[in-house]
């Protein structure tokens, strides 16, 4: 892959030899390296919930090794490899726009904002594969309520972290960054809509969107924006990245729907990761009882 010519670095950036040597000593004395330990840090006091009982979990290795996170490369194995050094501390999330109390939350504050729950959700990618993941987090509504949306707020716009220096592969993704997503306010306030900080009992791995991501289980996976830094309540439907890139293929709503094909492939079936043959895709990814009322009277072919 391409990289900056190392010889183009100014001498001012060269680490002095004594610092370099002492850092080696420090690192050696700290084995096993704490950074590695932090990557698999357990989350404590998680409340189990009844969501997804009876679903067979997708193995941890697949959940954390088969990802779409285009800032870190477009191959499925790229994010696990390239997101290792993403700095997730310090990290803040700005909640602003049509709210009475705009606020910047520190990530450690977010982690204590509401009781953490484990929820086992089906996760359906627009590409035709799916997983079952034990996410950890709390309803997005809890965070939004803290900012007190005003009566103008009808939509919620989300924005991902973007730093080309930490994400050099992003230049080749073919979509613009920072990544943007959006929901209608009632979708955002729905109890199934989850602000996720972990999975499989541990802090969210970087490749899965650390330190904070969205999961909307009845929508295609790309609606679940990763590494969120900004949440803005707005009056009008906000622009979203994939919709801008290709409006015919990726609608604003992007509810899982076996009847509405992606122009280039059918959405009628999906391959559950770990299974050889495909299974039928369910309307709203099987969460119709909970969410169908949100779209009553709407033509789902038109608002795909």
């Amino acid at each position: 892959m391409r990289g900056r010519n190392p010889f183009s670095l100014p001498w001012s950036m060269v680490t002095p030899k004594h610092v370099y040597l002492s850092r080696r000593r420090v690192l050696a004395s700290l084995l096993p390296i704490p950074a590695v330990a932090a990557a698999t840090q357990r989350l404590e006091g998680i409340r189990k919930t009844g969501y997804g009982q009876g679903e067979k979990l997708t193995p941890y290795e697949a959940v954390t090794g088969y990802n779409n996170f285009y800032e870190f490369g477009t191959g499925k194995e790229d994010p696990a490899r390239n997101a290792k050094n993403l700095r997730t501390r310090p990290w803040t999330v700005r909640v602003e726009g049509e709210v009475l109390k705009p606020r910047t939350f520190d990530i450690d504050e977010v982690l204590k904002l509401a009781p953490l729950e484990e929820r086992i959700y089906r996760h359906r990618c627009v590409e035709g594969w799916s997983m079952v993941v034990p996410w950890i987090g709390f309803p997005l509504a809890e965070l939004l309520k803290k900012a007190e949306p005003n009566s103008n707020a009808r939509f919620v716009a989300f924005e991902s972290f973007y730093d080309p220096r930490q994400m050099p592969q992003a230049a080749w993704a073919g979509i613009p960054f920072p990544y943007m997503e959006g929901l209608r306010l009632d979708e955002a306030m729905h109890p199934l809509t989850l602000l996720v900080v972990g999975l499989y009992g541990e802090i969210l791995p970087n490749q899965n969107g650390a330190p904070l991501r969205l999961i909307v289980p009845w929508k295609y996976g790309f609606k679940g924006i990763k590494s969120i830094v900004r949440i803005r309540l707005v009056k009008n439907q906000p622009p979203t990245t994939w919709n801008l890139a290709n409006p015919r293929e990726y609608g604003f709503y992007s509810n899982v729907n076996p009847q509405v094909d992606h122009p280039r492939w059918s959405q009628a079936k999906e391959r559950r990761i770990g299974e050889l043959f495909k299974r039928d895709t369910l309307l709203f990814n099987g969460y119709g009882n909970e969410v169908a009322h949100l779209y009553e009277g709407m033509d789902l072919r038109k608002y795909y």
Partner: peptide, 13 residues
Amino acid sequence: GFFRDSLGPNPVE
């Protein structure tokens, strides 16, 4: 790889 199950999470892909 297929029979060793070492083609990654989505072997068919």
